[in-house]
Design a protein around this nucleic acid. Sequence first.
DNA 1: TAGTGGTCTAGACCACCCC
DNA 2: GGGTGGTCTAGACCACTAA
Lengths: 238, 238
Amino acid sequence: MVKYKDIANKVREQIYSGEYPADAMIPDQNSLAKAFGVSRMTVKKALDILAMEGLIYRQRGAGTFVMKNALMAGRDSLVDEYEGLTTQMKGHKLVSKAIEFEIGFPSEKIREKLMVEENNPVYKIIRQRVVDDDLLILEHTYMPADLVPGLAKEHVESSIYAYVKEELGLKFGGAFRQIHADKPGEYDYKYLDCGEQDPVLEVEQVIYLKDGRPFEYSRSRNRYDKRSYNVIDVKQDN
Amino acid sequence: MVKYKDIANKVREQIYSGEYPADAMIPDQNSLAKAFGVSRMTVKKALDILAMEGLIYRQRGAGTFVMKNALMAGRDSLVDEYEGLTTQMKGHKLVSKAIEFEIGFPSEKIREKLMVEENNPVYKIIRQRVVDDDLLILEHTYMPADLVPGLAKEHVESSIYAYVKEELGLKFGGAFRQIHADKPGEYDYKYLDCGEQDPVLEVEQVIYLKDGRPFEYSRSRNRYDKRSYNVIDVKQDN
DNA sequence: TAGTGGTCTAGACCACCCC
DNA sequence: GGGTGGTCTAGACCACTAA
């Protein structure tokens, strides 16, 4: 539908397929524009995408080159975290078991994170996430009830995100995450099979809708020996 | 110098100063184009920057709005990690004490991370990072010696990045990071004041130059009770 | 000096939201 | 239907690199 995305996809495929080998120069923007039958601006916009992904780099006056290693940007490694574990773990067996699924009034900390009032009810959910029969995560989730009407245990045990996105039609805008290491607590002993010496990797996040309303506050407590958190960072200017 | 960056800076200031209040609509692109005396494409490019920063969101057909909370994108919170701790901790007292500073041949793991040959010497550095008299990080760093000629203990104890950037003129392209929780080890007991029960937050990263050559592999072992890792994530499309 | 990528223009068409 | 943002064009000028 959109030309610059099509072009980005085609060039990306040519890189992955080895048609443009690592460290080699790819055709200049004018040639690509002619080849694709578009204007040069459109080609540049396509290349901007690949540069953000870390696949190419450009040097004014010299040309456009394929990254030596493509910054580990494996074909399907860049799944948006907003999609939830269900999407990330496609191809694996994911089971989510609800330990708690309640609705109530928010504590002060939750009010602050979700920017809601004292009398605005929130869901409180605790889930075990089991991937391929491996217990990996204990997740504490809070969501304003008015933003997610009709949430049921069946959604909680399959995919909350799918419900929110497809049934309710809400759109995610971004997230703010803090990643800590922590000592295990009572819940971790009980529901994450943690020993007393086992650290926990906690991802504490607030997810926002497109208009900036906080939509979810959660603490994902990960088994330290089975999960890590990856960040790919591509510098923009220089 | 560049118009779209100027415009982005000006609008950003207007948002921070409250001239465009949270959740309010800002002038449409045509008005801004007239006001700044540029074409609409240039205005859009400026707004693209602010959208990537999470300051505004746009709705086709409706308008451009200031984010309710600006995704916590505080004025100076978005320091690039490539700059190193020295820059991040501007305004604080940072002391880096070298525990080890050696040069030698790389192990297989290091060869793989830095993509160097067996006979290509690498620096091996272990540093304590103390911020405002607080011991926060124990950092194990490896760098190919040929990429950083003339590195001396004086740079290691002040800022390696400043040396690399300003003296050698190298440009960073990006980084790949993995964040784990880990149990403490011998080095952590000795040099990070860790107790046997204290988890460690480890940031393992490879930093790449602009052309994709790996430039540094490091493991930053952080005091779990004093440091966390923050990620701001703004969704692009929809 | 020739060729590259970065920026900018003036205008056009379209998809979408809201009245 | 009127106004919004998203895309695209054809051409221009500039900054930079490399031969």
